[in-house]
Design a protein around this nucleic acid. Sequence first.
DNA 1: AGCCTACATTCCAAAGTTGACATGTCGTCC
DNA 2: GGACGACATGTCAACTTTGGAATGTAGGCT
Lengths: 175, 175
Amino acid sequence: MSLRHAMLGLLARGPASGYDLMKMFEISLSNVWPATQSQLYGELGRLADTGLAEVVAEGPRGRKEYAITDAGLAELRHWITDVEPNRSRRSDMLLRVFFLDTVEPEQARHYLRERAAAATEQQDGLAKVRELIAEGRDPLSVYGRIAVEWGLRFSAMQREWAEWAVGQLDQLPPR
Amino acid sequence: MSLRHAMLGLLARGPASGYDLMKMFEISLSNVWPATQSQLYGELGRLADTGLAEVVAEGPRGRKEYAITDAGLAELRHWITDVEPNRSRRSDMLLRVFFLDTVEPEQARHYLRERAAAATEQQDGLAKVRELIAEGRDPLSVYGRIAVEWGLRFSAMQREWAEWAVGQLDQLPPR
DNA sequence: AGCCTACATTCCAAAGTTGACATGTCGTCC
DNA sequence: GGACGACATGTCAACTTTGGAATGTAGGCT
């Protein structure tokens, strides 16, 4: 149930409407925890029902501004410090690797080369994001940079791994 | 819908029952694509309904042995070569990082140090797995090693990143 | 013969996720 | 004053994932 906590985390920075949260997700959290608009509004209602957030203002076009409550902040902190992060990472990319022997060797190599290329592309994109938030001294920028750094290191690792793996296949005896 | 393809991939190595698949998932795929017994049996039925697999033998205790069909093999190969792997990786571990400014600085450091420790632990576990399959010349071992190498590199990267991140926090001006 | 473990399947409820559809309003530019 | 894009929320069906309960059989050991 991390969606709930992602929303609490954003609300902890200040009151926001569902629409605001939607944009914040798109900008900053989409790579870490994607959420659709319907999920957001649904969860916002549940947050209010359970007292973790409350409507603090109503604006034009039916806008409802929500703020985190003390209970919500406590729940957020509890989640951050006391709940063990999920270890398992589903990866259909890696799943395919297990079955690469069912396709032609050349296709297996192609698959891995594509992974390396995709990683490079991702790295370039993240490098640009890092530049955008390079200046900020606010918490969002500081911790955002730490998260971006993770992505950068991850894609570098993946690129190197994929290149190494192609080399492994080259050393394989022909079938 | 990768579960279907994970099962097809295992069936491509030879006929198996739901129970057999369950054990294979536990041993080799649990880190990449966890699946529960109820999912397995359900999907097995659907595989048979859609002609991607078929019952080839019945054994004691109601055992039904399934084998992949030509259509199933074609679908598996199609998935491996033509379907773009999912880029997005949900990570509640990284999500917490975004909100680390809502807890005490010391708790933030503690969180990151715990991540480093967990990564080290994971690395040790994978190193043992690698030893276990170091010998095999069969496709499962070859590609299994490539997958394990990914995990090893991933956890090394995560450990280094977490340690680096603690250093970043140390350079932060006190609130 | 009796017991235990491993084998083996089926069904179900709850929660999470996706993507689409439906509906309406405010502000601004021409 | 009309058109349009951005703002704003709500609902729904389908599918996936999780976790548990219920049920029963075969084989091996004592």
